[in-house]
Design a protein around this nucleic acid. Structure first.
Length: 738
DNA sequence: GCACCGACTTAGGATGTTACAA
DNA sequence: TTGTAACATCCTAAGTCGGTGC
């Protein structure tokens, strides 16, 4: 659908995304970040949390106050955020503008209305599975569901009563992989079908949770004495602390980051904090620092790692697997579930994306004293490493995280949570798609309504309607931005809104806007042409206000539901359009990828073309050429074999003809496969399919498509994806309609 | 009503592993 | 057997949204 995705567009996009944007540079002028001195920080934390083993509300308040005091960094963050969002919105809008973006294809309207009853699980009295309702109202649609409906529905709560979460339960969890060999690893035979059970109500996420806590980053290993750091041309032995931070920089020497001023400046500032006073006195200029020997050492190490013998590699692998087995799983409500990120982020230099003002800052090492552990009271609590204490152990079953800590760069909280294959993530995912399906039911009237509202006499209503239009069609979400110290929500800069009005803009044709939209924009633009934002903050500038409005329109509706809905409905529609029954499997998969790609383009999921793209494309072309030659040869041979057979008229030559014929056929097939591959790859050059596949496309659409056309689901989803979408694979049959 | 924050979800680059061709 | 491309997984930054407290 967007085959003409132009080169220009992508340049615009990736260009600004990766932070060149000179136009805005002034915006991010270096500011003295008042972020605390690292050491002060440490001290304060020490005093703050010295006796924080127990949850203490006054302590918490105190902590909060402390946090608020240090608002400077947050402001900076906001400012930075603002810029990033602007760029994205602007770039995305340009691209989508040209391509007529999210404007739903005309066919969407003609989608048969789904008569199923949708309701938000959130507000249901009984949080029974959505498909239970499907069964009730449309039994024939989801056959498999129907069958299951007759099965007894296990009651989770009852189960809990029956099997008290004593330690022993762990041993019998289904998916234990006893054999260390990965190749031999089997999918667990009996996978828990959580989707056939009841959900919790009232925000309870679990009743029992037990885990072993996080895995900390390995301690720093000092450099061997022959690897030296040089200052001003002379070797210099660094203290352990300073050396460690230096290695972070040395490891990144080949990266573009280390050439950036901001990065260098932030790094140097934080590095100096780790130095002894002598070092501090001596090392005053980063440009005089020579890390190259260190850099080479790390390169050599990584080479050595690659060159390790099979046995050595195997040993490491086994150790990793042991770690995974021990720390990678938890027990949540009688089921053993995989943890997503059980390793604590190691220390290093912060790699903010784009022109992040904090890039290069030191991400400090996380210690047990920074860690909040969340688990059941009656579970065996994870033990902190000997001689250390957790910051806190809490038992909050209204949240899903197992471990959390606050990082030092932005002051944000980081979490350890469960794998996407877990019940807790899967349920949420499923619910997300159900909300999007409910939007499908009312999207037409909703669209009609906001179009109507463009004409409203009330400015507030008109603006809201324009906002909705953008959210729906261009996925320009309202966002928060700093404006004179106040947080306002707004759309992107005027330049973004203006582009459809600029006469020479190619984008003018792009957004199929009604005249009343133009009118609304124009009014604003005339008045605010020099202002940074389009909408006045007085009326609707809180994201929450708009979201409240969305809630009124449909239960559970937020801006992001539009994205899910538009993506999924587009996939379904594109699959219908592109798949033809005559095609063979690989052609069908190409069609699937094309449908997926259409969605990725809509959602503006871009990627940098792989570094090896041109080369690999060339290689493929060479292969194709060779195959063509081979085909020509084979055809010639067939021809002469035929001629031969005509003369000889014996069995042997007849057989030879058959053989040659088959050879030609085989080569033709191979050639086609290669050509399909080339097309697919070329079209995929700058598009990232993963994000939409993983986050926006209702997996049941893909599963239904696979079942309908007899495509093995493995061709569409790899193992991890199949684990994540197990619920969909199990429940959707070929008739599934999004 | 505003500012801020916690708890998630989304995003895509980096790194590791596997499959396949030479 | 080796080198390489493709694919999978890991990692963590960034975005979203609702809640809270002033």
């Amino acid at each position: 659908m967007t085959g003409d995705h132009s080169h220009n567009d992508s340049q615009i996009n990736s260009g600004s995304k990766y932070g060149d944007s000179h136009k805005h540079k002034d915006k991010y002028k270096e500011r003295e970040h008042k972020h605390k001195d690292h050491k002060k920080d440490k001290e304060r934390e020490k005093s703050k949390y010295s006796n924080s083993e127990h949850k203490d509300s006054s302590d918490k308040k105190h902590r909060e106050k402390e946090k608020h005091k240090d608002g400077s960094s947050d402001k900076q963050k906001d400012k930075y955020k603002e810029k990033r969002k602007e760029e994205r919105a602007f770039d995305g809008a340009l691209i989508r503008g040209r391509e007529n973006g999210f404007a739903s294809p005309p066919h969407i309207k003609s989608e048969p209305e789904n008569e199923e009853l949708y309701h938000s699980p959130k507000h249901k009295k009984s949080l029974k599975r959505e498909h239970d309702d499907d069964d009730e109202f449309k039994p024939k649609k989801i056959k498999t569901e129907n069958d299951k409906g007759e099965k007894k529905v296990k009651k989770r709560r009852q189960e809990e009563e029956d099997i008290k979460p004593k330690k022993k339960t762990k041993d019998k969890k289904g998916e234990v992989r006893a054999d260390g060999k990965k190749k031999a690893k089997k999918e667990p035979e009996e996978k828990w079908k959580w989707w056939e059970e009841e959900r919790y109500t009232d925000g309870v996420k679990w009743k029992f949770l037990e885990h072993k806590g996080p895995v900390f980053a390995p301690p720093y290993e000092p450099l061997p004495s022959n690897v030296k750091f040089y200052y001003d041309g002379r070797p210099m032995k660094l203290s352990l602390e300073a050396e460690e931070v230096a290695t972070f920089f040395a490891k990144m020497l080949d990266h573009e980051y280390t050439t950036k001023d901001v990065f260098r400046k932030n790094f140097f500032k934080d590095w100096r904090k780790e130095m002894t006073s002598e070092e501090k006195a001596k090392i005053t200029d980063l440009n005089k620092c020579d890390f190259s020997e260190m850099n080479e050492y790390f390169k050599a190490q990584s080479e050595a790692r690659k060159a390790m013998t099979k046995q050595e590699k195997q040993k490491i692998k086994e150790e990793n697997e042991r770690l995974l087995l021990e720390y990678g799983y938890c027990v949540m409500d009688n089921h053993r579930e995989r943890i997503a990120n059980f390793r604590i982020e190691p220390p290093g230099l912060f790699r903010g994306r784009g022109d992040h003002p904090k890039m290069g800052m030191l991400k400090r090492r996380i210690r047990p004293e920074d860690i909040i552990v969340n688990c059941s009271k009656d579970s065996e609590h994870p033990k902190p490493p000997p001689g250390t204490k957790w910051k806190e152990v809490r038992h909050d079953n209204k949240v899903t995280w197992l471990v959390s800590w606050t990082e030092n760069i932005q002051g944000a909280i980081k979490y350890i949570m469960l794998n996407p294959s877990s019940r807790i993530k899967g349920e949420k995912d499923w619910q997300k798609y159900e909300t999007a399906r409910r939007l499908k039911k009312c999207v037409d009237s909703l669209r009609a309504q906001y179009r109507e509202d463009w004409k409203s006499k009330e400015m507030r209503i008109r603006q809201r309607a324009v906002a909705l239009y953008f959210i729906d069609k261009a996925h320009v979400a309202l966002r928060e931005a700093q404006e004179g110290g106040k947080v306002v929500s707004c759309f992107s800069e005027v330049r973004f809104i203006l582009f459809p009005l600029t006469p020479n803009s190619q984008s003018a044709k792009a957004l199929e806007m009604c005249s009343s939209i133009f009118l609304n924009l124009s009014i604003n633009c005339y008045f605010k042409i020099l202002m940074p934002h389009i909408f006045t903050s007085a009326l609707m500038h809180q994201t929450t206000i708009l979201n409240k409005h969305l809630q009124e329109l449909m239960d559970g509706l937020t801006a992001k539901v539009f994205r899910t809905y538009n993506a999924s409905i587009t996939l379904q529609q594109q699959l219908k359009e592109l798949t033809s029954a005559e095609e063979n499997v690989s052609a069908k998969i190409l069609s699937y990828n094309r449908a997926n790609r259409a969605v990725a383009i809509l959602c503006n999921h871009q990627r940098a073309p792989p570094k090896t793209f041109e080369k690999s494309m060339q290689n493929l072309q060479t292969k194709i050429d060779a195959k063509k030659e081979q085909l020509a040869d084979a055809k010639r041979e067939l021809k002469s074999a035929k001629a031969d057979a005509k003369v000889r008229r014996d069995e042997k030559s007849k057989k030879a003809v058959e053989t040659k014929k088959k050879a030609v056929q085989r080569i033709e097939e191979q050639l086609m496969k290669l050509e399909v591959q080339a097309t697919d790859r070329e079209e995929n050059k700058q598009i990232a399919l993963g994000t939409s596949k993983l986050n926006y496309l209702d997996p049941r659409i893909s599963v239904a498509w696979c079942k309908k056309w007899g495509i093995p689901v493995e061709k569409i989803y790899n193992k991890t994806q199949r684990e994540k979408f197990a619920w969909a694979i199990d429940m959707a049959d070929e008739d599934f309609e999004f």
